[in-house]
Amino acid sequence: MLTTTSALVTAAHDAHTGVAAFNVIAIEHAEAVAVAAEATGLPAILQISENAARHHGDVAPLAAAAAAIARASSAALSLHLDHVEDAALLFRTAECGASSVMFDASRRSDEDNVRATREAADWAHEHGLYIEAELGEIGGKKGSAHTPGVRTDPQQAREFVEATGVDALAVAVGSTHAMTDRTAQVDLDLVARISAAVPVPLVLHGSSGVPADLLAAAVRAGMTKINFGTMLNVAFTGAVRAALAASPDAHDPRPYLAQARTAVAEVAADCLRTVSGGNQ
């Protein structure tokens, strides 16, 4: 069933557990997450990044497919727009069926980040939407923002939330986007200190590079929304490569896309169990 990100994140935050959010690039990604959520009995967030929307030429087709998959599922799934920098896309959040958005002004100066995020949060709340933002760059993205080694200061995080009114905060605690090995080291003490200082749920980006046991520990320390992307794509592409290597004359994409979907579902199920405490 299609539910709201607010409901899923709030429930996880209140229960001191985590909820997994998965980047959707192709329909098979969304289908795989739904399969994993149904198999584990756990909720999940389907999220479409601005980059994914740009890849498809428009956010609407992929968002419509993801929302339809969520509505047809027996699992609780929400739809979220991720790393939105373009105000035009921000303003289409509700139109495309999403109940939440991550507005990313972290490439701007601190003052401009606060101003733009405050305006985005005011607009989102006027339209009944849940909004996530970022202070403290997450590593692995091009440009001056997202520089590896950056860490979020707990007091600055608190002041940012107070100044902007956002509902959830993505913080820099050691993870890095686009990692294909799980060697990132999350600063659990910093997570605990930020969690104690900030009244809203915390979000971990770049979770694919964090070992499973450390992810579980990060949730126990205070992280709530845990984002996954790269590891799904590694599983997806690996399955396609293996299928085409086994059948080099294949021309119908359905068999190898089905194998990719199964591989992604297996990875997503593991992620869901990890962030929920592994009890399912």
Rank of each mutant, 00 (worst) to 15 (best):
I226F: 04
R158W: 04
T230V: 06
G149C: 10
E159M: 05
D167L: 05
D252N: 12
S175I: 03
R254V: 13
S106A: 08
F22H: 14
P253W: 11
A75F: 12
R261S: 05
Q156K: 12
L90E: 00
A246T: 11
T262N: 07
A178P: 04
V9K: 03
Q259T: 13
H80I: 05
A11E: 12
L135H: 02
A87E: 15
A235R: 14
P43F: 07
Q185P: 00
D181I: 12
E134H: 06
A32D: 02
T230Q: 14
G140Q: 03
A66L: 06
N279G: 09
P201D: 03
Y256V: 13
E95K: 15
S74K: 15
A15L: 08
A242N: 06
A87C: 07
A53Q: 00
V9S: 02
A67K: 06
V19P: 08
S100I: 05
V210G: 05
V203A: 05
L244R: 14
A217D: 10
A60N: 00
A250S: 11
P211C: 06
G139I: 02
W123T: 02
A172K: 07
A124S: 12
G278L: 12
A235F: 13
Q280G: 14
H127K: 11
A124Q: 06
G139N: 04
E137N: 09
H16Q: 15
R193H: 05
S49T: 15
L272A: 08
V9G: 01
R115T: 06
S74T: 15
T183L: 09
G18V: 12
I226S: 00
L202Q: 01
V84S: 00
H83T: 01
L77Q: 13
S207Q: 09
D189S: 13
A75G: 07
A72K: 11
G238S: 15
A12C: 08
L272N: 01
R151I: 05
K225D: 01
L42G: 13
P148S: 06
H125F: 00
D167Y: 03
V24Y: 01
A20T: 08
P61T: 00
A235M: 13
V101C: 08
I69S: 09
H55D: 01
H13Y: 13
A145Q: 13
L272D: 04
A192Q: 10
V84P: 02
V210H: 04
